[in-house]
Amino acid sequence: MNEESLRPVARSLLRSYQVRIARSRDLAEALARGTLSSWSDKDLIFNEGDPSKAVEVVLKGKVRVLKRDASGNNKELAVLNSPAMIGHMGMVDGSMRSASCIAVGSVGCISIDQETFRELLGETSNPGAAFRHLILSSLSMQLTTANNKIRHLIDDMESEKRREKVSLEDAVAQTQQESDDSDGESSAIRLMKIAGVLDGWKMDSEGIDDIEFVVDEDMKRTREARKKRG
Protein backbone atom coordinates (compact mmCIF):
# COMPACT_ATOMS: atom_id res chain seq x y z
CA MET A 1 0.00 0.00 0.00
CA ASN A 2 1.37 3.42 -0.78
CA GLU A 3 2.31 5.89 1.93
CA GLU A 4 -0.01 8.64 0.73
CA SER A 5 -3.11 6.44 1.02
CA LEU A 6 -2.06 5.45 4.56
CA ARG A 7 -1.80 9.06 5.77
CA PRO A 8 -5.44 9.28 7.08
CA VAL A 9 -5.04 5.97 8.97
CA ALA A 10 -1.71 7.12 10.41
CA ARG A 11 -3.30 10.40 11.48
CA SER A 12 -6.20 8.60 13.22
CA LEU A 13 -3.79 6.21 14.93
CA LEU A 14 -1.73 9.11 16.27
CA ARG A 15 -4.90 10.72 17.54
CA SER A 16 -6.45 7.64 19.17
CA TYR A 17 -3.18 6.56 20.81
CA GLN A 18 -2.56 10.16 21.88
CA VAL A 19 0.94 10.32 20.45
CA ARG A 20 2.42 13.64 21.37
CA ILE A 21 5.31 13.84 18.97
CA ALA A 22 5.11 12.21 15.56
CA ARG A 23 4.15 13.13 12.02
CA SER A 24 1.47 11.20 10.16
CA ARG A 25 3.66 11.03 7.03
CA ASP A 26 6.42 9.28 9.03
CA LEU A 27 4.02 6.79 10.57
CA ALA A 28 2.43 6.18 7.14
CA GLU A 29 5.92 5.40 5.80
CA ALA A 30 6.43 2.91 8.63
CA LEU A 31 3.03 1.25 8.04
CA ALA A 32 3.71 0.99 4.31
CA ARG A 33 6.40 -1.59 5.09
CA GLY A 34 3.71 -4.03 6.26
CA THR A 35 1.58 -6.32 4.09
CA LEU A 36 -2.17 -6.19 3.54
CA SER A 37 -4.37 -8.98 4.85
CA SER A 38 -8.14 -9.39 5.01
CA TRP A 39 -10.69 -11.49 6.88
CA SER A 40 -14.39 -12.18 6.45
CA ASP A 41 -17.05 -11.96 9.14
CA LYS A 42 -16.41 -14.34 12.10
CA ASP A 43 -12.94 -15.34 10.82
CA LEU A 44 -10.40 -16.01 13.54
CA ILE A 45 -7.57 -13.47 13.18
CA PHE A 46 -5.56 -15.21 15.90
CA ASN A 47 -6.22 -17.44 18.86
CA GLU A 48 -5.34 -16.98 22.53
CA GLY A 49 -2.13 -18.91 23.23
CA ASP A 50 -0.83 -18.69 19.63
CA PRO A 51 2.76 -17.47 19.16
CA SER A 52 2.94 -13.75 18.32
CA LYS A 53 4.10 -13.38 14.73
CA ALA A 54 2.84 -9.93 13.70
CA VAL A 55 1.24 -6.70 14.81
CA GLU A 56 -2.04 -6.06 13.04
CA VAL A 57 -3.08 -2.50 12.30
CA VAL A 58 -6.82 -2.64 11.63
CA LEU A 59 -7.61 -0.38 8.67
CA LYS A 60 -11.21 -1.39 8.07
CA GLY A 61 -13.97 -3.12 10.06
CA LYS A 62 -14.28 -4.21 13.67
CA VAL A 63 -12.48 -6.81 15.77
CA ARG A 64 -14.00 -8.71 18.68
CA VAL A 65 -11.56 -9.55 21.48
CA LEU A 66 -12.25 -12.62 23.61
CA LYS A 67 -10.41 -13.99 26.63
CA ARG A 68 -10.86 -17.29 28.45
CA ASP A 69 -11.83 -16.96 32.11
CA ALA A 70 -10.74 -19.30 34.92
CA SER A 71 -13.47 -21.80 33.95
CA GLY A 72 -12.34 -21.82 30.30
CA ASN A 73 -15.31 -19.84 28.97
CA ASN A 74 -14.68 -17.07 26.44
CA LYS A 75 -15.60 -13.63 27.72
CA GLU A 76 -15.76 -10.56 25.51
CA LEU A 77 -13.15 -7.98 26.47
CA ALA A 78 -13.86 -5.41 23.80
CA VAL A 79 -14.94 -4.70 20.25
CA LEU A 80 -12.28 -2.57 18.59
CA ASN A 81 -13.07 -0.14 15.80
CA SER A 82 -10.59 0.74 13.08
CA PRO A 83 -8.01 2.12 13.17
CA ALA A 84 -6.55 0.10 16.02
CA MET A 85 -3.35 -1.75 16.71
CA ILE A 86 -3.61 -5.32 17.99
CA GLY A 87 -1.07 -7.89 19.11
CA HIS A 88 1.82 -5.52 19.81
CA MET A 89 2.46 -6.77 23.37
CA GLY A 90 3.51 -10.20 22.17
CA MET A 91 5.87 -8.59 19.68
CA VAL A 92 7.45 -6.40 22.34
CA ASP A 93 8.15 -9.14 24.88
CA GLY A 94 7.82 -12.35 22.86
CA SER A 95 4.80 -13.57 24.83
CA MET A 96 1.95 -15.65 23.35
CA ARG A 97 -1.32 -14.08 22.25
CA SER A 98 -3.17 -13.22 25.44
CA ALA A 99 -6.63 -13.10 23.79
CA SER A 100 -8.42 -14.25 20.65
CA CYS A 101 -9.47 -11.83 17.92
CA ILE A 102 -12.42 -12.42 15.62
CA ALA A 103 -13.45 -10.34 12.61
CA VAL A 104 -16.78 -8.53 12.82
CA GLY A 105 -17.82 -8.01 9.20
CA SER A 106 -15.13 -7.59 6.60
CA VAL A 107 -11.79 -6.65 8.19
CA GLY A 108 -8.69 -5.24 6.48
CA CYS A 109 -5.35 -5.03 8.27
CA ILE A 110 -1.73 -4.19 7.70
CA SER A 111 0.43 -6.94 9.17
CA ILE A 112 3.84 -5.90 10.42
CA ASP A 113 5.89 -9.04 10.89
CA GLN A 114 8.55 -9.62 13.53
CA GLU A 115 11.47 -8.67 11.30
CA THR A 116 9.92 -5.38 10.16
CA PHE A 117 8.82 -4.64 13.73
CA ARG A 118 12.39 -5.08 15.02
CA GLU A 119 13.78 -3.03 12.12
CA LEU A 120 11.42 -0.14 12.84
CA LEU A 121 12.16 -0.18 16.58
CA GLY A 122 15.89 -0.19 15.89
CA GLU A 123 16.00 2.49 13.20
CA THR A 124 17.37 5.99 13.66
CA SER A 125 14.96 7.46 11.11
CA ASN A 126 11.71 9.41 11.03
CA PRO A 127 9.49 6.33 10.38
CA GLY A 128 11.36 4.40 13.11
CA ALA A 129 10.88 7.22 15.63
CA ALA A 130 7.16 7.60 14.74
CA PHE A 131 6.59 3.85 15.17
CA ARG A 132 8.45 3.78 18.52
CA HIS A 133 6.38 6.73 19.74
CA LEU A 134 3.17 4.92 18.75
CA ILE A 135 4.22 1.82 20.72
CA LEU A 136 5.37 3.90 23.71
CA SER A 137 2.11 5.88 23.82
CA SER A 138 0.08 2.69 23.62
CA LEU A 139 2.02 1.08 26.49
CA SER A 140 1.68 4.24 28.54
CA MET A 141 -2.10 4.31 27.94
CA GLN A 142 -2.38 0.64 28.89
CA LEU A 143 -0.62 1.25 32.21
CA THR A 144 -2.46 4.47 33.03
CA THR A 145 -5.90 3.15 32.12
CA ALA A 146 -5.31 -0.03 34.13
CA ASN A 147 -4.04 1.93 37.13
CA ASN A 148 -7.08 4.20 37.03
CA LYS A 149 -9.42 1.23 36.79
CA ILE A 150 -7.70 -0.50 39.71
CA ARG A 151 -8.07 2.71 41.74
CA HIS A 152 -11.80 2.87 40.83
CA LEU A 153 -12.23 -0.76 41.79
CA ILE A 154 -10.54 -0.22 45.16
CA ASP A 155 -12.71 2.87 45.78
CA ASP A 156 -15.89 0.97 44.85
CA MET A 157 -14.94 -1.90 47.14
CA GLU A 158 -14.28 0.58 49.97
CA SER A 159 -17.75 2.07 49.38
CA GLU A 160 -19.25 -1.41 49.28
CA LYS A 161 -17.68 -2.23 52.63
CA ARG A 162 -18.96 1.00 54.11
CA ARG A 163 -22.42 0.31 52.70
CA GLU A 164 -22.50 -3.06 54.42
CA LYS A 165 -22.31 -1.24 57.72
CA VAL A 166 -25.40 0.91 57.16
CA SER A 167 -28.97 -0.38 57.17
CA LEU A 168 -30.24 -2.40 54.19
CA GLU A 169 -32.66 0.32 53.17
CA ASP A 170 -29.96 3.00 53.10
CA ALA A 171 -27.66 0.63 51.28
CA VAL A 172 -30.13 0.13 48.42
CA ALA A 173 -30.46 3.89 47.97
CA GLN A 174 -26.70 4.35 48.00
CA THR A 175 -26.12 1.51 45.53
CA GLN A 176 -28.29 3.29 42.97
CA GLN A 177 -26.12 6.39 43.33
CA GLU A 178 -22.67 4.86 43.52
CA SER A 179 -22.61 1.90 41.20
CA ASP A 180 -22.61 3.91 37.97
CA ASP A 181 -18.92 3.25 37.31
CA SER A 182 -19.16 -0.53 37.55
CA ASP A 183 -22.31 -0.91 35.39
CA GLY A 184 -23.30 -3.73 37.74
CA GLU A 185 -20.25 -5.83 36.83
CA SER A 186 -18.74 -8.12 39.40
CA SER A 187 -15.21 -7.58 40.75
CA ALA A 188 -14.04 -10.64 38.80
CA ILE A 189 -15.29 -9.24 35.47
CA ARG A 190 -13.79 -5.84 36.21
CA LEU A 191 -10.43 -7.43 37.09
CA MET A 192 -10.54 -9.46 33.89
CA LYS A 193 -11.13 -6.26 31.91
CA ILE A 194 -8.23 -4.54 33.68
CA ALA A 195 -6.00 -7.46 32.67
CA GLY A 196 -7.29 -6.95 29.11
CA VAL A 197 -6.43 -3.25 29.21
CA LEU A 198 -2.92 -4.10 30.37
CA ASP A 199 -2.55 -6.45 27.44
CA GLY A 200 -3.54 -3.63 25.10
CA TRP A 201 -6.90 -5.09 24.10
CA LYS A 202 -9.06 -2.17 25.14
CA MET A 203 -7.94 1.26 24.26
CA ASP A 204 -10.62 3.41 25.84
CA SER A 205 -9.00 6.38 27.51
CA GLU A 206 -11.26 6.52 30.53
CA GLY A 207 -9.78 8.65 33.27
CA ILE A 208 -6.81 9.87 31.27
CA ASP A 209 -8.26 13.02 29.85
CA ASP A 210 -5.34 14.94 31.32
CA ILE A 211 -3.09 13.82 28.47
CA GLU A 212 -1.73 16.76 26.57
CA PHE A 213 -2.79 16.58 22.96
CA VAL A 214 -0.23 17.62 20.42
CA VAL A 215 -1.06 14.70 18.17
CA ASP A 216 0.11 15.37 14.68
CA GLU A 217 2.73 17.92 13.83
CA ASP A 218 1.74 17.87 10.15
CA MET A 219 -1.79 18.90 11.07
CA LYS A 220 -0.44 21.54 13.42
CA ARG A 221 1.67 23.02 10.66
CA THR A 222 -1.23 22.95 8.19
CA ARG A 223 -3.43 24.73 10.72
CA GLU A 224 -0.75 27.35 11.36
CA ALA A 225 -0.24 27.91 7.63
CA ARG A 226 -4.01 28.31 7.15
CA LYS A 227 -4.13 30.82 9.99
CA LYS A 228 -1.30 32.81 8.43
CA ARG A 229 -3.11 32.85 5.11
CA GLY A 230 -6.00 34.31 7.05
Binding site: S71, M89, V92, D93, T124, S140, L143, A146, S186
Partner: peptide, 30 residues
Amino acid sequence: GALERHLIATMARRIRSTNKAIQLVWKDAQ
Protein backbone atom coordinates in the same frame (compact mmCIF):
# COMPACT_ATOMS: atom_id res chain seq x y z
CA GLY B 1 16.57 5.82 20.12
CA ALA B 2 18.30 3.38 22.48
CA LEU B 3 16.64 5.10 25.42
CA GLU B 4 13.21 4.70 23.78
CA ARG B 5 13.80 0.99 23.09
CA HIS B 6 14.86 0.55 26.71
CA LEU B 7 11.72 2.40 27.81
CA ILE B 8 9.52 0.11 25.69
CA ALA B 9 11.10 -2.94 27.34
CA THR B 10 10.77 -1.39 30.83
CA MET B 11 7.10 -0.54 30.32
CA ALA B 12 6.34 -3.97 28.88
CA ARG B 13 7.92 -5.57 31.97
CA ARG B 14 5.91 -3.27 34.24
CA ILE B 15 2.70 -4.16 32.38
CA ARG B 16 3.45 -7.87 32.67
CA SER B 17 4.12 -7.71 36.43
CA THR B 18 0.97 -5.62 37.05
CA ASN B 19 -0.99 -8.05 34.90
CA LYS B 20 0.36 -11.01 36.84
CA ALA B 21 -0.77 -9.43 40.12
CA ILE B 22 -4.19 -8.61 38.68
CA GLN B 23 -4.62 -12.14 37.28
CA LEU B 24 -3.96 -13.62 40.73
CA VAL B 25 -6.61 -11.45 42.39
CA TRP B 26 -8.97 -12.02 39.45
CA LYS B 27 -8.57 -15.80 39.82
CA ASP B 28 -9.48 -15.57 43.52
CA ALA B 29 -12.47 -13.35 42.76
CA GLN B 30 -13.62 -15.76 40.03
